[in-house]
Nucleic acid binder design. Structure first.
Lengths: 144, 144
DNA sequence: GTAATATTCCTCACCTACTTAGCAACTGGT
DNA sequence: ACCAGTTGCTAAGTAGGTGAGGAATATTAC
């Protein structure tokens, strides 16, 4: 990638991981007939429902864009809009079974492989890996 | 992200890394007045010159798109086009000092932090981390 | 209690960056 | 010498983003 990286196999592996981590969603989304943003939205919504503005922040786009993203996901039946119980301004975007299934079946092989990889680590190694991942995340975030 | 991930701090950390790894280039590119693809192109070109088609494959876009990307980078003075020595069809896209400086100064803090993180590992731990990163990369790539 | 301010979500007009299709130049194998 | 394959480009169309701004509701200050 850059001169400083060369020679360190760990940094090289990290670079490849991040590269693949951006190309894979692109490809998976295309196969599913979704845009990358739509797929990422479904992923975020699998954890918990959230409003379009919150989704926009999670994706790093404007609320105008996420409004359109939600529209398209609603059209495909992957999410529904629901009024927020306590706050009349808010809408909750809720993932449907269709959306959940779409994401899950597309990504199942990866989950399985990652779980196996995780299980292959003993307590010490798991700790080492986690600290490295958190550290690398912090290093990247420092650019923002 | 998904039910299976919850409870594993390692997989959670991996997810966060990949998420940040996609949002950071987006932000950095914006600050540099470049598109994400343009920044990624410069990153790839720091290693070695390559043709537009090769670049297109690296980015996961069509050659028509990469033709435009190179055009824009040439306009900004970050790369130049050069005829290939032995193959009359090919063009080599070469990064300029301007382009190299642009990428390097934007990303220097990250390189420093990552190098420090790497240096903090002993031989065994470095090996563990690298195997994990390669394994995770393979797991993701299996979706493509 | 009411006025001022903030937040959420949407629409509209515009624009960037992609895709598909196809063409001209060149290469290498038969 | 030809023909299939590759490279790199252009042109036309489109998807999905931004910026500005408005309507509805909530929150804060007075």
């Amino acid at each position: 990638m850059v001169p400083q990286w060369q020679g360190s196999t760990t940094l090289d592996a990290l670079q490849e991981l991040v590269d693949v981590g951006t190309r894979v969603p692109h490809e998976v989304a295309r196969k599913a007939g979704l845009s990358t943003s739509e797929l990422h939205s479904l992923r975020h919504l699998m954890g918990a429902p959230m409003g379009p503005v919150e989704l926009a922040r999670a994706l790093g786009v404007t609320s105008a864009a996420s409004s359109g993203i939600v529209d398209r996901l609603v059209t495909r039946g992957h999410v529904t809009r629901r009024a927020h119980a306590a706050d009349g301004r808010r809408t909750e975007v809720v993932i449907t079974d269709s959306g959940r299934t779409e994401v899950y079946t597309r990504m199942a092989p990866m989950f399985t492989a990652l779980a196996a990889l995780d299980a292959s680590l003993d307590a010490h190694d798991r700790d080492v890996v986690e600290r490295y991942l958190r550290g690398a995340t912090a290093a990247m975030r420092s650019l923002m």
